[in-house]
Structures are given as structure tokens and as C-alpha cells.
């Protein structure tokens, strides 16, 4: 489906109606999810109200990983078929992913401080998400360092794919590293069993984040299609308007119609 959508016209046909739908889902799920998370969901018998941080922390962590997967897939498509929309998807998804990752880390800290008694634990999950954050930053700065757009697209695609392959290896390594001195005092904030009364608002908040990301991506890519049309129109009409400017500046320009094709 993703390669099918790489055709800009088909993409626009899909995204024009899909973006508002995603927006509506985002608004609805937030309207339902936030009060549920903040008021109606039960307090944890051990963690009290601090468990409410979970409803913004866990979806952000999900998005941190999900967005990087999207970037890796888009990187593959961008690298193999050189689809401009796939590259644009990486360009817009990378900063969003970095923001979600930062949110996951910061809200995790805000949850960890009252629960674990520390802002940061060298827990396997935290550590691998931190590495993921650096991978996002690398993608963003690599794009910023390269002037040529086509070249940047290929290089970022390579970096995205290699980074994605490394994420599970990083996870594996920090798991082993952490298992060697697991501190017993740590209260597992997210136990294996989570009651339905908490799972439902969590699922809805997760859906809200997902729909929000979908809306933002579709909207940004629709704008990207427009930007590319503008560039294409400018490259078609650009020389003519430039001649007009030259004519104003120097009368001789009008006598060189051949220059208009330049």
C-alpha cells in the first residue's frame, strides 16, 4: 500500500479525506481519553495518582518506536525506489519522533522520581530509548548538514535503515548489561498485569497519539505535494519572469529572447 501511495496523485486522493478523519479521531480520543486518564481512571493502590502519568508516558514511548519504524520503512522505499514522498515522510517524521522520544524520557523521569526515588534509572528500557533519541538527532542533523536534496534523501535513508537494524541490538545489549545488577528496590512501574480499568484509557490515549501522528504526517505530506507543485510551476515559468526583471533593469534584455529558454 505504501508503494502504491508513492504516486503523488494517488496519495493526494487518499490523504485529502484521510487527514480530516485522522483529525476527528484525534480530537475525539483526546476528549474521551484525557478526562478518563486524569479523573475517572482508578488510582494505583501503590502508586496513587502518579500512575496517571502512564497515560501520557506509555503512548509517547510507543510512538517513539513506531515513528522510527515508519522512518526505516520510508528510508527503504526512498532508497530503493527514490520516491520523493517517502523522503519527505522521513523529513517530517524525524523531528516528531524526536519530540515523542523526548516526551517519553521526560515523562518517564517525572514518573520515576516519586516512584523510584530517582529521576533516572539505568534501566534497560530507559537506556535504549535514550540511544533511540540520539539516533533521531543524528538523522535530523545529517539532513541539516547536506545541501543537495537528492543526496540528502539517499544519505538519510541509509542512516535510517542502519539505525533501525541497530535498535534491537542495543535493546539486547542493555538487557544483558542491566540484568547483571538489577536493583531489587526498583518498583516495576509497569507490571505484567494491568487492570482493564487502566488499560482502556491507556489504549484510547495510545490511539489518540497514533491518530495525531497520522494527521500530522498526512497534512505535512499534502503540503509537501503543494510545495513540489510550486517548485515545478516556478521552474516552468521562472525564466520568463526573470526576463521581465532583467528587462526592467537593462533594456537590452528584451532583445535576447533566446535567454528565455535558459
Amino acid at each position: 500500500m505504501i508503494t502504491w501511495l508513492a504516486n503523488p496523485e494517488r496519495f493526494v486522493k487518499f490523504a485529502r479525506p484521510a487527514a480530516p478523519i485522522a483529525a476527528i479521531i484525534t480530537v475525539l480520543t483526546f476528549i474521551i481519553g484525557i478526562p478518563w486518564a486524569l479523573v475517572f481512571s482508578p488510582e494505583d493502590f501503590r502508586q496513587g495518582a502518579s500512575v496517571r502519568i502512564m497515560y501520557v508516558h506509555v503512548p509517547a514511548a510507543w510512538m517513539a518506536m513506531f515513528v522510527y519504524t515508519i522512518i526505516a520503512v520510508a528510508g527503504f522505499i526512498s532508497f530503493v525506489w527514490r520516491h520523493v514522498l517517502a523522503d519527505a515522510a522521513i523529513r517530517y517524521a524525524a523531528p516528531m519522533g524526536a519530540i515523542f522520544t523526548a516526551l517519553a524520557l521526560v515523562t518517564g523521569s517525572l514518573w520515576g522520581q516519586p516512584m523510584w526515588g530517582t529521576w533516572w534509572a539505568w534501566d534497560a528500557r530507559l537506556t535504549s530509548v535514550l540511544v533511540l533519541f540520539f539516533l533521531y538527532l543524528g538523522l535530523i542533523s545529517l539532513r541539516g548538514a547536506i545541501g543537495n536534496e537528492t543526496r540528502a534523501a539517499r544519505l538519510v535513508a541509509i542512516a535510517a535503515m542502519v539505525g533501525w537494524i541497530n535498535v534491537p541490538i542495543v535493546k539486547f545489549s542493555v538487557d544483558i548489561w542491566n540484568s547483571l545488577h538489577q536493583s531489587a528496590s526498583v518498583i516495576r512501574a509497569d507490571g505484567p498485569t494491568i487492570h482493564a480499568s487502566m488499560l482502556w484509557p491507556l489504549a484510547i490515549m495510545g490511539l489518540a497519539y497514533m491518530a495525531f501522528f497520522a494527521w500530522a504526517m498526512l497534512t505535512a505530506l499534502l503540503a509537501e505535494v503543494d510545495v513540489r507543485r510550486v517548485k515545478a510551476l516556478d521552474s516552468k515559468t521562472g525564466p520568463a519572469s526573470r526576463i521581465r526583471i532583467e528587462t526592467n533593469a537593462s533594456p537590452g534584455g528584451a532583445f535576447k529572447p533566446g535567454a528565455a529558454n535558459g
Binding site: 484525557i34 486524569l38 488510582e43 496513587g48 495518582a49 502518579s50 496517571r52 502519568i53 501520557v56 508516558h57 509517547a60 519530540i99 515523542f100 523526548a102 516526551l103 521526560v106 515523562t107 517525572l110 514518573w111 522520581q113 516519586p114 495525531f212
Partner: peptide
């Protein structure tokens, strides 16, 4: 927030501001 206002509200606030 059951005494956790200092942690819960910044978490929600930062999430909201980012979104």
C-alpha cells in the same frame, strides 16, 4: 493529584505543549 501534582501536571503540560 494525591500529592503528585508536581509530577503529574508537568508531564501532562509538556505533552500538551509538544502536541
Amino acid at each position: 493529584m494525591g500529592g503528585f501534582a508536581l509530577y503529574v501536571w508537568p508531564a501532562y503540560g509538556l505533552s500538551l505543549v509538544s502536541i
